[in-house]
Computed example of a mutant assay.
Amino acid sequence: MNDAETMVLPRLGPAAASVEDPWGEGRAVAPGRPPAVVPARRFAAWLVPALMMAMVSVARAGGPVPRAEEAAAWRAATSSWRDILHSGDVTGAPYHLLIRAWAEAFGTSAHALRAPSVLAMTAAAALVAATATRMFGPGTGLLAGAIFAVLPTSARYAQQAQPYALTLLAAVLATWLFGSVVERPTPRRLVGYGSAVVLLGLCHVVALLLLAGHGWTVFAFRRKAAARWLVVVAAGVLPAAALLWSAAKHGTWIGPVSQPSPQLLAELPGQLFGRTAVGAVLLGLALFSLPLRYRTAIHSASAVVPPLALLLVAQATPIWEPRYLLFTLPAWATLGAVALARLSARRTDL
């Protein structure tokens, strides 16, 4: 199978669209090139979602101190460096060391300890929009960033001293760099992508399941880049693998986990998106964003493959926890934005 832009080839779009571009998306964005748009529109496409996310995040970042789920971070902020390293929470140590350093510089108030999450989620909203803008144009980018910013879970974890906001930012960064590295795998881009993989694994090892989605995209569309991608990924996951090995050696695990059951799986949309109704709408839009083209397939794989991989792994060991899948939110938001943009395009063409 040769590298290709399209896997599904129905003629669904207007007559002016080609068979390989059923929605006419290629008319605005040439393969491998950024869309030709006014710089101000590109700037606004990521700035507006970033401001939205910042305002939502800051609004309640000074809430009760500490919330139950933030207790570990508060203990780390007031503990000695030695105590953190010998706490037994091996996989959480990188985040706790970061919080300890942050507290040393900015104090241990609620706003101070939650600031890294606020900053990470704000940057993630901007990067979600920038990634979608590069692939689909500024209108879709703005929609993607805005959808991500208004999701209840985005606001919730931006307001908590937990590693999930930083994990999500690392996931968005890895996907941003992935799009470049499979098109032109230069040494500089490979190093950048590998560094993002390292950061992702140190933030939360389960988030490395994002690489399963990236891998599917590589082998489905860009097989010529597969060897380089595998080498970079293998090197990038080594630090996280070392953490897992150390955790297993000490008899510890990555946090609260459970065995997936039909009831837990049914609750996943509400827990992942914050509201069951929001999850149903976004999932419906995502189905409309089927991977007709390579750019959409990147996000489809990043959204769908990691949950399936986690479910598969959970059959062998109790590792199921909806929070571990928060790093898929940017992909879901982007798919929703692509669907809305396509619906708008269809109405314009009719």
Score class of each variant (00 low, 15 high):
A146I: 04
L151D: 00
A149V: 09
A144F: 05
T186C: 03
Y193N: 06
A161V: 00
L173A: 14
Y157T: 06
A149M: 06
L199I: 15
V191Y: 02
A158R: 07
T186R: 13
A165C: 01
I147R: 09
A174K: 02
A144W: 08
T175C: 07
V182K: 07
R189M: 08
L166E: 00
Q160V: 05
L177T: 13
G194P: 13
V198E: 03
L143Y: 12
R184D: 14
T167Y: 00
P185W: 13
G141H: 10
L200W: 06
R184Q: 14
F178C: 10
L177F: 07
L199G: 12
T175I: 10
P152G: 06
R156Y: 12
R189L: 14
Q159E: 14
A196T: 03
Y164T: 09
P163Y: 08
A174C: 15
A174G: 11
T186D: 01
L142R: 10
L200S: 04
S195E: 10
L168F: 02
S180P: 07
V172Q: 04
T140G: 08
F148G: 04
R184K: 12
A149S: 14
T140C: 15
T175V: 13
L169Q: 00
V191E: 00
V172G: 00
P163N: 13
G194A: 08
L200T: 01
S195T: 15
V198Y: 01
V197E: 05
P152W: 02
Q159G: 12
L200H: 02
T167Q: 14
L168P: 07
Y164C: 04
R189F: 08
G139Y: 06
V197D: 01
Q159H: 11
V182Q: 08
A170V: 00
L168T: 15
A144S: 05
F148I: 09
V182I: 14
V172K: 01
V172N: 00
T140R: 09
A149P: 05
F178V: 02
Y164M: 10
